[in-house]
């Protein structure tokens, strides 16, 4: 009995020391990690919507905040949201900047583990730039009758990205068009 208590005690000492060290290190790495993640998202937002100077959260989509960006004069510069759908072998997450008239300003793939050499080519700038200026109605792969040119050999990935963006644009339009009549009304009153 006494022997087993000793075993337990030795294990206890080892785990206590280990968790103490880990707690100490976690104490100074955690804020840095949090800061890194926040910065990465902020940089992605700034990249897809460079006209905006400040961002206000307006809704949630795919467990991420949807932002409305305002420029230096306080006017609406556009929106950003994260589109996400399951592609060929992973969730493909895309940060999207949207102009006030609901066209894509710029996109940036922020998370994917698609097949290297095929689907993973979606991170190439040549691919991402083709989304710029496109609205919801043409946000379809060319094979589906839209204007998005598929990556060779990776139609599924391309389709996933186009579809996820289309869903996001639709969602954005719905929530924003609802609040619009109010603004128009207000303008009429001030006139």
């Amino acid at each position: 009995m006494k022997y087993y208590l000793r075993l337990g005690f030795v294990l206890l000492v080892i785990t206590v020391v280990a968790s103490g060290i880990l707690a100490y290190i976690n104490g100074f790495t955690e804020p840095i990690i949090k800061e890194n993640q926040r910065k990465a998202k902020e940089e992605a937002r700034m990249e897809v919507l460079p006209e905006a100077a400040s961002f206000d959260s307006i809704s949630f989509l795919n467990e991420e905040v949807v932002y409305a960006g305002k420029n230096n004069e306080g006017q609406l510069a556009g929106y950003t949201f994260v589109a996400s759908l399951y592609g060929y072998s992973s969730d493909v997450k895309t940060m999207i900047g949207v102009t006030p008239d609901f066209k894509v300003n710029k996109i940036k793939i922020i998370e994917q583990t698609e097949t290297p050499g095929l689907g993973a080519n979606c991170t190439k700038p040549e691919f991402q730039s083709q989304f710029e200026g496109k609205n919801e109605t043409v946000m379809l792969v060319d094979k589906d009758g839209g204007e998005i040119v598929s990556i060779t050999g990776a139609t599924i990935t391309t389709r996933t990205i186009a579809n996820s963006i289309r869903i996001g644009l639709k969602f954005l339009k719905e929530i924003e068009v609802q609040s619009e009549p109010e603004e128009i009304h207000r303008e009429e009153v001030t006139e």
């Binding site: 075993l7 030795v10 294990l11 080892i14 785990t15 280990a18 060290i21 880990l22 290190i25 976690n26 790495t29 955690e30 840095i32 990690i33 890194n36």
Partner: peptide, 25 residues
């Protein structure tokens, strides 16, 4: 008798340290 669990605790601690430090820096 308890060497394997002890070793694993030591190893896991160092791995967690590497994991946290790498993620931060």
């Amino acid at each position: 008798k308890i060497r394997i669990p002890s070793y694993i605790v030591v190893i896991a601690s160092f791995v967690t340290i590497v994991d946290m430090v790498m993620e931060a820096y």
